[in-house]
């Protein structure tokens, strides 16, 4: 009984793998020896030409609509997308790569390689992912992901957004908390090797801010010094605010 079940399942799988009935396999027009031009109103699902692929960034060498399948000669993104998601939007503590600054991604790949970014998950996952990554591939990956459109994770506490925005924009000079805006920009879009923070996930931002205070990734100056003055509730507020921030909408 079990074997029959398995056979049925494998048959079903092979049908699925073969794909739906398609014009190339069973082309009714070819059988009839007529071309679509001779039947102008012919518009069945099988014969209708595929719509052009939507590409919101025409300047990108990587057509976004092809995701999650990168071009054959493109960078080996599948290894990244296993964890970072097929459209690289990240998941919880796994950071979003889409829209991240290319120079920042490249710098961090270097930091995983020389183990200076030693946060627990970095050591567990990223240290083993990068040793054989040639520099030109690292650059191509950084370029590829930076061109994908980012979406805001929006997973923080909405009640803390106002407090987070105030901290982000002005800091708290009395408590020696610097503003974030000076380096990360008015809409947290980042610049150069300074990362885009807008819309990163609450869980990722919170862990990062906490882990500088726990002694991890001390080479990322000036962040270890910046986070030193932040309380747990202030970290909560900042991470919440940033998780909802859609800098592309903000700058429009």
């Amino acid at each position: 009984m079990k074997q029959i079940g398995l056979t049925v399942a494998s048959l079903a799988i092979s049908f699925l793998a073969a794909g739906p009935l398609h014009a190339q396999q069973l082309d009714p027009l070819a059988l009839l020896k007529v071309t679509p031009a001779s039947v102008p109103d012919h518009n069945c699902v099988i014969c209708r030409p595929a719509p052009p692929l939507y590409n919101p960034r025409p300047d990108s060498p990587y057509p976004l609509a092809l995701l999650p399948l990168p071009p054959a000669n493109g960078p080996p993104v599948k290894n990244c997308t296993f964890c970072h998601g097929v459209s690289a939007q990240g998941l919880g503590v796994v950071p979003r790569l889409a829209g991240q600054r290319a120079a920042y991604i490249e710098k961090e790949l270097g930091a995983f390689r020389n183990h200076s970014r030693d946060n627990p998950y970095s050591a567990l996952y990223m240290w083993n992912a990068v040793p054989n990554l040639p520099p030109e591939t690292a650059r191509a990956l950084a370029d590829y992901f930076s061109r994908e459109a980012p979406q805001a994770a929006a997973d923080g506490n909405r009640a803390l957004v106002d407090q987070g925005r105030a901290l982000y924009q002005a800091g708290e000079p009395q408590a020696n908390i610097v503003t974030c805006v000076v380096c990360h920009g008015p809409d947290a879009q980042g610049v150069g090797a300074i990362p885009r923070l807008a819309g990163l996930s609450y869980s990722y931002l919170k862990r990062r801010l906490e882990q500088w205070n726990q002694g991890y990734h001390q080479t990322a100056k000036p962040m270890p010094q910046v986070t030193r003055s932040l309380s747990a509730s202030e970290i909560d507020a900042l991470a919440s605010y940033l998780s909802f921030l859609d800098d592309r909408a903000a700058s429009r």
Partner: peptide, 18 residues
């Protein structure tokens, strides 16, 4: 130390967004 967080270690300046 608060000044140096933004103005750079040893006051050498820093290229942030600004």
């Amino acid at each position: 130390e608060y000044c140096e967080t933004c103005h750079g270690a040893s006051g050498q300046g820093f290229y942030g967004y600004y």
